[in-house]
Design a binder for these strands. Structure first.
Lengths: 239, 239
DNA sequence: CGACACCTTGAAGAGGTTCAAGAAATGTGG
DNA sequence: CCACATTTCTTGAACCTCTTCAAGGTGTCG
């Protein structure tokens, strides 16, 4: 068998549980395998797509870590999310066939390129794929509701606590530690995401460390007291 | 012809351009007409669905004005959007077959109930409907990016300016005035949406009125200087 | 008409920002 | 591989925006 064709088959990808529908018939699996047209490697700092780029397809992250951000005409920008292996980027482009945000690799990365017309065609025939696509988009909508809640009603330390818990939870789902993580983004990028200045992020980190909730050494974070973080996010629930 | 069947046909609805795909073959139009299972009337203050409710379908607003909001366990809540005629509510429920936000009518309203399984089935057969669904969800994702930008990087008056411009633009697309609007929500609800306290919203309204940018009489707002509002949102662009 | 919800405005206070300086890490070129 | 430049991070102090608390006004609905 041609080793190249093995390489781009979703059925052989250990991330398929994350980015593809589960429980398919073998026949459908073969069809899903044809979805991924190619792979693309990116080096740290490289853009996967930019605001204004023509939308051609979605990207499933194989390895690496991304940020997406939107920018105003006057140059302010807002990080709208951080994405890791198994997650899908590019949904913003569907409405107007144009990307409205930037996607940048925060470390060397590789993505599967999924042409959008193939998704359309195939999801008409494979019900599981159709449902999967709807769920992926709905999940993104719900995630953003959570971010709005964070930005609209939490104070600085609550935001950072929620951010850390979310990151570590997603990393844990990928087989990493529940208590240790390496931040792939700068304080400024965290701040942009959380609606805070980088100094405030830094101070909040220091405060958490002072209180013994975490240990911070630059981008290495060890969570010492997960419960304390959870209570910060949900202050009322103090049984 | 049975008058009841006329009444629930999308093809006779003057909002179809807003909530349904355009440019369909007559055959497809007839099938789209079957999507709407029923209509539901709500009185002011009534919930269309609540956080935790089982997800059964989407709702297309025929008349009225809604808000959606998410709530934390400790009781804080965040308005995630205001929806008007022709817009679709309920997309949050798709991921987990459970609604994760509340949808409340801010005035007497009527919605078309669209069972989700019918959307799934029909959008496998009618390409235009499939594309429409994807676009509706993508549009919501992009809208939320905009809200994140607002919440994360704008100051109070910029937020209110952006809010007013967005509202009046959507109303204008529905045939209403470009300069006059009646707010269907309270200052507190506006504040929740914008991540501000109601007092700050009130003060910002007063400031705008003082500067001659708008006239405010309770919930009646007349925009006197649209350009001034636009410049608040995009301060740099001062040619 | 009275009760209630909603809105406005003032004054004091808190949380986060801004500005600034220095330390630590990272990357680069010789 | 080391030295230097650059980026990133931390911390302090002053400042500002928005919040909080409070009181009074306005509008609405039974």
């Amino acid at each position: 068998m041609d080793p190249k064709s093995i390489k781009v088959a979703c059925s052989n990808c250990n991330l398929r549980e994350l980015c593809m529908p589960m429980g398919l018939a073998t026949e459908d699996i073969e069809r899903i395998d044809t979805l991924v047209a190619s792979r693309r490697k990116l080096t740290r700092g490289e853009s996967l797509f930019r605001n204004g780029d023509k939308f051609t397809g979605l990207y499933a992250i194989r390895v690496g870590f991304f940020k997406t951000s939107v920018t105003t005409e006057d140059g302010r920008d807002q990080v709208t999310g951080f994405q890791m292996a198994g997650e899908i980027i590019g949904l913003d482009g569907i409405v107007n066939d144009l990307h409205t945000c930037d996607a940048v690799a925060l470390e060397d990365a590789e993505v599967c390129v999924i042409p959008y017309d193939m998704i359309e065609t195939l999801s008409r025939e494979v019900t599981a794929l159709q449902q999967h696509m709807h769920k992926v988009m709905s999940r993104e909508i719900v995630r953003e509701h959570g971010v709005m809640l964070l930005l609209g009603s939490m104070r600085a330390e609550e935001r950072l606590a929620a951010f850390l818990l979310n990151l570590v939870q997603r990393l844990h789902a990928r087989g990493f530690s529940q208590s240790e993580l390496v931040l792939r983004m700068t304080r400024e990028e965290i701040g942009s995401y959380l609606g805070l200045k980088l100094e405030t992020v830094s101070r909040s980190f220091s405060k958490f460390a002072e209180d013994g909730i975490i240990e911070v050494k630059q981008r290495h974070v060890r969570i010492m007291d997960t419960e304390a973080l959870k209570q910060m996010v949900n202050p009322q629930t103090c049984h």
